[in-house]
Design a protein around this nucleic acid. Structure first.
Lengths: 344, 344
DNA sequence: TTGTATGCGTTATCAC
DNA sequence: GTGATAACGCATACAA
């Protein structure tokens, strides 16, 4: 049995389709009895408005698009969970798109979202994206957009981000407070907002503690696989050697950890390590990987909340504010943890 | 500027909408010149058929639904990557839905997918699901369905699965060959296809090597958080103690690893550990976690391929076959790996 | 070979 | 108050 339509209800009650439509929408100017009858019948038939027909009509499609670099990533999948939670609660479907860190895919995803007539868009920029004209265009066509995590200043929308500056400051300050002085910073593409903010936090902490900033201690990697080893080698070759690492992503953190292990550099004996990461397996598997945790789920919730407000109330008047969510510094460097391998 | 429609092309060329439609659709004998003109104009205006209108019409929506337990899971996100790759290549959008392992959400997702008029459905059952009537209903309405990973025999569809039996057999056999005799099996809900197949593989290997099956060595957990510790404790309390663990999921493997560490049980000194898992971070962080790898991406690709064939060619006649993809046993128990913590 | 009319589910704009 | 009708973008049976 196909889903019930307005027509079904109309036939059932021997009234016209438009009356049914109004009974379900407009509360005013309609007979109370008729309305009650319609509501009742709709409930009985499990009537759900067809979002497809709605979007064709040009009205709301009750769907929002979410464009992220990838879902095989703990941060983004948690963010998506938060997004879905709030969106579903407010009656919206969520369409997920992955850019795989490629600008072309981002543009293609945008087209798909547009074709599916999403009511609004949530986006975290791909690492390849530095031109946002495709998004500006969409915005000018009237599609509400909210940026989260990796945002662009060139795109005038509300933004929800983690406190990258604060997190990086806290991490760096912690390392400095525990006596480290030569802190290497392994980070990602320099044009990303998160990269710049984290670098700024790192530099601010150094400045605050009177430690000079040294350019050679900062290396920019990508999200690609296995290029971490060489970077770590370069850094370890410096004179004097770094006594701490602060990495800016999940992959870099894990890669750095593995590289240090392989080179038999003791953690936290020889060097300390703090990553900007949301890996939960690290809790269990990497007792020496301290992390700056981002509230991924809450960021998603806040972002989608703002988007839905934008869609429903058309708060276009309100200035696009940036919401900064606090991060948490989790220190794991207990040397009393049991170790992974005990050969007999 | 809104996306171009058939009407735009028709106006531009001073012909009727239906002619344009046919020219693009290449239906039957149409004037070659007209066709060329239309094609040209369509290209110039960047015409893309509106999938929304198509689905309202009752025809193809060029979208498939994918229902998985969760995306914050390496196996499923890789599978989704495979699915998207093939689907996009063949001109389909992919709508992703998460059940969060809950039956109610699965039903709700199904409704959403239905409302969005997906052309077909790819599903991996939630761990709560043992009644598949909601899917049978959908199938009777004519929606093509393909199951993957967690499948039900009660639902008569093509299936694409990993070789759970073979993987479990190989893992167990490896442990037996290396001299282990009391192999604990930590697994998930007993009614899931993957659970049963893995258990069968485990038992078959034991039988093959003449080791009696012992019920107390098998424990059923869930996908919930942190219930692994107590199970491990129970198993370690057995007399004689297990000398190996074979776990059936990512979470169980990591949980078991952490629990063993915490209890200072040496791996692979005291016990061996093999997990049925697709964690890649484990490659770097857990040098003693051997795994049975599943070809997640290929499973996704194969599954979606079958679904699209079903949709496009309506191969309903062909018997719904089950495709079993081989797994890979990756042994990691080198005791020469550098250890995580070296306290000084 | 091409144009016209119809319908998919819904809402808005008219009439009644 | 309520019903008929047009429109959204498209495909198609039917007419020309």
């Amino acid at each position: 049995m196909a889903p019930a339509t307005l027509k079904d209800i109309a036939r059932e009650l021997n009234i016209s389709v438009s009356t049914v439509s109004r009974a379900l929408r407009d509360s005013y100017e309609i007979n109370a009895d008729t309305k009650r009858l319609v509501m009742e019948c709709a409930a009985r038939l499990h009537y759900r408005p067809n979002p497809i027909a709605l979007s064709l009509k040009g009205a709301s499609s009750k769907a929002i698009g979410v464009i992220v670099p990838q879902i095989a990533n703990y941060y983004f999948s948690q963010a998506i969970n938060g997004i879905e939670e709030v969106a579903n609660q407010r009656g919206y479907d969520v369409l997920i798109f992955q850019t795989h860190e490629a600008y072309d895919r981002e543009v293609a995803n945008l087209r798909q979202a547009l074709a599916r007539r999403v009511d609004g868009l949530l986006i975290s920029l791909s690492s390849e994206t530095n031109d946002v004209s495709h998004l500006q265009e969409l915005q000018q066509q009237g599609t509400p957009i909210v940026q989260f995590d990796r945002v662009s200043a060139l795109l005038n929308t509300p933004r929800v981000v983690a406190d990258n500056f604060g997190g990086a400051f806290a991490a760096t300050a912690h390392l400095l407070q525990s006596g480290r002085r030569r802190i290497a910073h392994l980070t990602i593409q320099p044009w990303l907002s998160i990269t710049q903010e984290r670098l700024a936090g790192y530099r601010a902490a150094l400045a605050h503690y009177g430690v000079p900033y040294e350019e050679s201690l900062v290396r920019f990697g990508t999200f690609g696989p296995d290029e971490v080893g060489p970077l770590v080698d370069e850094l370890l070759a410096l004179e004097p050697r770094p006594d701490a690492f602060f990495t800016a992503s999940d992959r870099l953190a894990v890669g750095c950890l593995a590289a240090l292990r392989q080179r038999r550099v003791a953690i936290p004996g020889d060097v300390s390590l703090i990553g900007f990461t949301n890996l939960t397996v690290a809790d269990m598997l990497a007792p020496s990987l301290s992390t700056v945790m981002q509230p991924a789920k809450q960021i998603g919730q806040e972002a989608v909340g703002r988007l839905l407000d934008l869609i429903e109330l058309k708060h276009r008047a309100a200035p696009p504010a940036t919401l900064t969510m606090p991060t948490t510094l989790v220190i794991r460097e207990s040397s009393s943890w049991p170790i992974d391998i005990i050969s007999k």
